[in-house]
């Protein structure tokens, strides 16, 4: 075989192996930032947020107000668009993502609920059941977060019902809203003691 042909075959082999290597590296997105993976790769958040925002603004000890004034970028899938008073979870579940730098601390989680439809919801952190979402008279739900559930980095808070959620105009024929309204949440905070008492 001519030398030129041998060189061409070798170069072809090098190119082919390089492509396989690049593909293998490209499929591993562990080197991308948490915020990047949340929005672009895993598509777990509705809106784009930068890693800097995630770490500084959507972190523990910050109160997230789910109204249209406050631009809650850490809302995950399952939520409607923020409204003047609160945001609805549409369907069975809604996620919120919170960045935690010190998971070893003691944390409490507090929700403000504006309205509940007839569904029973549970509260989860990183898919671990924390308790039922049963608002008190002021619409608050509070729990101590058990140790070992939170991790350093992005944590997922989920409000979920096991019931089937129906469109509002299916339940109430007079209603014009055809969204699957589950629960209307105004705010959430994941707070580490002793800052808790000041929120």
């Amino acid at each position: 075989m001519k030398a030129k042909n041998v060189i061409l075959y070798i170069l072809s082999g090098i190119l082919f192996i390089s492509y396989l290597a690049v593909m293998a590296i490209s499929l591993d997105t562990s080197r991308a930032t948490d915020a990047y993976r949340l929005y672009y790769v895993d598509k777990k958040v509705k809106y784009y947020l930068s890693q800097k925002d995630l770490e500084k603004k959507f972190c523990a000890d910050r109160k997230f107000v789910f109204t249209s004034d406050y631009n809650p970028l850490n809302l995950g899938n399952g939520w409607g668009d923020p409204e003047p008073d609160a945001t609805w979870i549409l369907g069975k579940s809604g996620d919120v993502f919170v960045y935690v730098t010190h998971p070893e601390r003691d944390y409490r989680i507090k929700l403000e609920i504006s309205q509940v439809m007839s569904y029973e919801n549970d509260l989860y952190i990183n898919d671990v059941l924390i308790g039922k979402v049963e608002p008190d008279e002021q619409g608050n739900v509070e729990y101590q977060v058990p140790a070992g559930i939170l991790t350093e980095g992005v944590n997922k808070i989920t409000i979920r019902t096991d019931s089937e959620v129906y469109p509002l105009n299916y339940i109430n024929p007079d209603a014009t809203d055809n969204r699957r309204l589950n629960i209307y949440v105004r705010s959430l905070i994941l707070s580490s003691a002793p800052e808790w008492s000041q929120i």
Binding site: K4, L8, L15, V22, I25, S26, L27, R31, Y40, V41
Partner: peptide, 30 residues
């Protein structure tokens, strides 16, 4: 061999961009 090499060359631009994106964003399919 020229056909094989020529065909292998075609994806070079595409994969070069993927390699660059992998370095910049951590995601070659960015």
């Amino acid at each position: 061999p020229e056909l094989i090499f020529g065909t292998c060359l075609v994806p070079l631009g595409f994969f070069s961009f993927m390699a660059l994106l992998s370095k910049i964003t951590g995601d070659g399919l960015a």
